[in-house]
Design a protein around this nucleic acid. Structure first.
Length: 424
RNA sequence: GGAGAGAUGUCCGAGUGGUUGAUGGAGGCGGUCUUGAAAACCGUUGAGGGUCACACCUCCGGGGGUUCGAAUCCCUCUCUCUCCGCCA
C-alpha cells in the first residue's frame, strides 16, 4: 500500500497516478474515510482516557457510596466505548477496502499507456534463427522426443498438467541447478521453500487466496494454499520483522513449485507448456534500503539477461507500461523469449521494483543509522520459469531431423549434447 | 497422534485484578573518574497511532469474554520445549 500521509499531502499526484495506471480507485474517498476514521479515533481515545481516570480513582479505599457512584460512571463509559468501537470497526473496514485499491506510485521513466502495446521495447538481443526447414512447435518436438507426456498429465491430474520425462526431466533439474549456481555466485542465498503457505501470508504479499477470481488453489479443511510463486514464501519469512541495516540488501533465490488455477484462462492460445497449472521456478527476491532499489532493479534485469544470453535464447526487453504494471510494481521489466513455434516473443521473465508497497502491508522494516525504523524496499524477478524455458530451448535449438541441441551451459548438468528421437 | 510445561521490552527474567508500559539484571548509548582503558558510579535505552509540538490512546504470542478496572481470571487458537508413539 501507499503511504497514507503521502496520499493526503499529494492528492493530485496520486489521482493522476491512478489515471496513468488505469486502475479503479478513489483517492478522495480514501482521504475522506481516513479523516473520518481519525476523528472517531480521537473521540474514542478521549473516552478511554476517562475510563483510565475512573479506574485510577478507585485504587485506594473509598466510602461505599462514592465507590458505587464511580462504578456506575464506569459502566456508562464502558457502554459508550462499546458502541464507538463497533462504529470504528465498520469504518476501518470501509477505509481499508478503499485504501488497498490504491496502486503504487509509478517510476518517472515508465512509459504511459493502458495496454501491453504501450510498453517500450528497450532492446533485442540475439537474432531469431532463420530455419531452412519449417520449425516445429514445442508440443510436437516434446512428443516426438518423448520428453513431455501431456496425455498422462491429463489423465492423472487433468488438463494443463504434464509429466517431464527423459531429457525433459533432466532439463528441469539442469536449468534449476544452472540458475541456482549462477545466483549463488552473485551473492544470493539459495532456498527451497514450502509449496504451501497460510492464507494470511498470501494476503500479505498481495494475493487473494479465496473468491471466484482467485488464481490460487486452497486446501480443503485447512488454512493452507498452494503457492503461486516462491515470492510468497520468501517474502512471508520476513513478516513483521525489523531488519538490521548492515545486513541489507538481502538477496535470495527461491526454488519452488508454483500452482495456478488459471481460472478464466481457458480458450486462450496457450498450448502445451506455455500456461500450466503446476511448474517449477527459481525466483530472485531482494530486500533493500529505499535508496538502492532503482539500481537493484537494473541488476535483476541484467542477471536475467545474463541467464538467457548464456542459454543462447534470443529475447527482447520490455519496459512495461503504466497500465499494465499491476498494483504493487513501481517499475517492471519483462524479458520475452523468441518462440519460433508461435512465431513471436513470449513472456519468460518479469522483474519488478515494488518499493515499499509490499513492506507496508507485511510490516517489514529496517533500523537506519539514526535508530529509526523505516520500511524496506522489495524487488522480485524470475530467474527460471522452467516450462517456458523448455519451450524456448526446444523451439530455438531444434534441428531438421527433429532432434534438439542442448545449450552448452546445460551440457554438464545433463550429460549429453543433444536430445534425439527415441527408437519407440 | 498421546501426556505435560511454557510464550512478558534487544536479551534474561519478576509480576497479590487497581500509581505496571510494566521490578530487577545483562547488553546498547551518553556522562563522571582516568594519560587511555577496565572497574565503579550516575543517567538513558520498545513499537504504533495522533499532534506544529504537547496532551492523549493502543500494544505483555493471536482472537474472544468476565469486570467500573485485566499482563494478572475464563474460553479458544497458534507456536515453542520435554517425554511417549509413528515414520521417509
Amino acid at each position: 500500500m501507499v503511504d497514507i500521509k503521502f496520499v493526503k499531502e499529494n492528492l493530485e499526484i496520486v489521482k493522476e497516478n491512478i489515471k496513468k495506471r488505469n486502475v479503479k480507485a478513489d483517492a478522495e474517498k480514501v482521504i475522506e474515510l481516513y479523516n473520518k476514521k481519525n476523528s472517531l479515533q480521537l473521540q474514542l481515545d478521549g473516552i478511554r482516557n476517562k475510563k483510565n481516570e475512573n479506574a485510577q480513582k478507585m485504587k485506594g479505599k473509598l466510602p461505599e457510596d462514592e465507590r458505587n457512584k464511580l462504578i456506575e460512571e464506569g459502566k456508562d463509559i464502558k457502554n459508550q466505548i462499546a458502541s464507538l468501537e463497533e462504529e470504528q470497526k465498520k469504518l476501518e473496514e470501509e477505509y481499508l477496502s478503499e485504501y488497498i485499491k490504491l496502486p503504487n506510485l509509478t517510476h518517472p521513466t515508465t512509459p504511459i499507456g493502458d495496454t501491453d502495446k504501450d510498453s517500450t521495447e528497450l532492446k533485442k538481443v540475439g537474432n531469431p534463427r532463420q530455419f531452412n526447414f519449417k520449425p516445429k512447435d514445442h508440443t510436437v518436438l516434446a512428443n516426438d522426443l518423448d520428453i513431455v507426456d501431456f496425455e498422462a498429465g491429463a489423465s492423472v491430474a487433468g488438463q494443463k498438467f504434464y509429466y517431464l520425462k527423459n531429457e525433459g526431466c533432466l532439463l528441469e533439474l539442469a536449468l534449476v541447478q544452472f540458475a541456482m549456481r549462477l545466483l549463488v555466485e552473485k551473492g544470493f542465498t539459495p532456498y527451497m521453500t514450502p509449496d504451501m503457505a497460510k492464507s494470511s501470508i498470501l494476503e500479505g504479499i498481495g494475493f487473494a487466496p479465496r473468491g471466484n477470481e482467485t488464481n490460487i488453489y486452497s486446501i480443503e479443511n485447512s488454512d493452507l494454499c498452494l503457492i503461486a510463486t516462491a515470492e510468497i514464501t520468501i517474502g512471508g519469512m520476513f513478516l513483521n520483522k525489523v531488519l538490521e541495516e548492515k545486513n541489507l540488501p538481502l538477496k535470495m533465490a527461491g526454488f519452488s513449485h508454483c500452482f495456478r488455477t488459471e481460472a478464466g484462462a481457458a480458450g486462450q492460445a496457450t498450448r502445451g507448456l506455455y500456461r500450466v497449472h503446476q511448474f517449477s521456478k527459481v525466483e530472485m527476491f531482494v530486500i533493500c534500503k529505499p535508496e538502492d532499489s532503482d539500481k537493484i532493479l537494473e541488476d535483476l534485469r541484467s542477471i536475467e539477461e545474463e541467464i538467457y544470453t548464456k542459454l543462447g535464447i534470443p529475447y527482447r526487453v520490455l519496459d512495461i507500461a503504466s497500465g499494465d504494471l499491476g498494483n504493487p510494481a513501481y517499475k517492471k521489466y519483462d524479458l520475452e523469449a523468441w518462440m519460433p513455434g508461435r512465431g513471436e516473443y513470449g513472456e519468460i521473465t518479469s522483474t519488478s521494483n515494488c518499493t515499499d508497497f509490499q513492506s507496508r502491508r507485511l510490516n517489514i522494516k529496517f533500523k537506519d543509522s539514526e535508530g529509526k525504523n523505516k520500511f524496506v524496499h522489495m524487488l522480485n524477478g524470475t530467474a527460471i520459469a522452467v516450462p517456458r524455458v523448455i519451450i524456448s530451448i526446444l523451439e530455438n535449438f531444434q534441428r531438421e531431423d527433429g532432434s534438439v541441441e542442448i545449450p552448452e551451459v546445460l551440457v554438464p548438468y545433463i550429460g549429453s549434447k543433444e536430445i534425439t528421437r527415441k527408437g519407440k
